[in-house]
C-alpha cells in the first residue's frame, strides 16, 4: 500500500543514482598526445590533441599537476589558459626524441621531433583548479 509521505525507497534509489552519476563528472579520464617538429632549428609544427577517453584506462596516477581553471569544466580551455605551464609539465613527464640530419655536399638539413605518445590522464575538476595526473 502506498504511504502518504511518498515512496521513500524510490527516493533513496534516485538519490544514489544521482550521486553515482555525478562522481565521474568531477573525476574523468582524458587522452592527451603532444608533438612538435623543429626543422633547421626553427619550429615547424606543434600539435596538442586532447580527447575524453571513451574506455576506462588502467593504471595508477603518477606525477600530479595543478592547473588554475576559474571554474571551467572544459579541459581544452583550462590547458589553453595555462599552456606554457602544461607544456613544461609534459616535458618533465618525458618525451620521445627523434632526430634526423642529412648533409649533402656540405649542406645540412635537420629535423627534430619531440613526441608525447597518447597517454591517459586522470583529471579532477574542482572549483578553482584542475588536478591532472598520467595513469601508468
Amino acid at each position: 500500500m502506498r504511504s502518504r509521505d511518498g515512496n521513500s525507497n524510490l527516493l533513496r534509489r534516485l538519490c544514489a543514482v544521482a550521486l553515482c552519476s555525478s562522481l565521474p563528472l568531477s573525476a574523468s579520464e582524458y587522452l592527451i598526445s603532444y608533438k612538435y617538429i623543429v626543422e633547421n632549428i626553427t619550429l615547424y609544427n606543434e600539435t596538442l590533441f586532447i580527447s575524453e577517453a571513451m574506455k576506462k584506462c588502467n593504471g595508477k596516477p603518477q606525477k600530479e599537476f595543478v592547473l588554475y581553471s576559474n571554474e571551467s569544466r572544459d579541459l581544452r580551455e583550462v590547458i589553453s589558459q595555462n599552456s606554457e605551464e602544461f607544456i613544461e609539465y609534459i616535458h618533465r613527464l618525458g618525451l620521445h626524441v627523434e632526430h634526423r640530419e642529412i648533409t649533402t655536399n656540405l649542406q645540412n638539413r635537420s629535423t627534430t621531433t619531440l613526441i608525447l605518445k597518447t597517454t591517459c590522464f586522470k583529471v579532477d575538476f574542482n572549483d578553482n583548479f584542475v588536478k591532472i595526473a598520467p595513469l601508468k
Partner: peptide, 16 residues
C-alpha cells in the same frame, strides 16, 4: 660527385 652523411638519434628523455 656526391657526398652524403646521415645521422639518426632516437631516445626518451625525462626530467630535463
Amino acid at each position: 660527385q656526391k657526398s652524403t652523411i646521415r645521422t639518426h638519434v632516437q631516445a626518451m628523455i625525462k626530467n630535463a
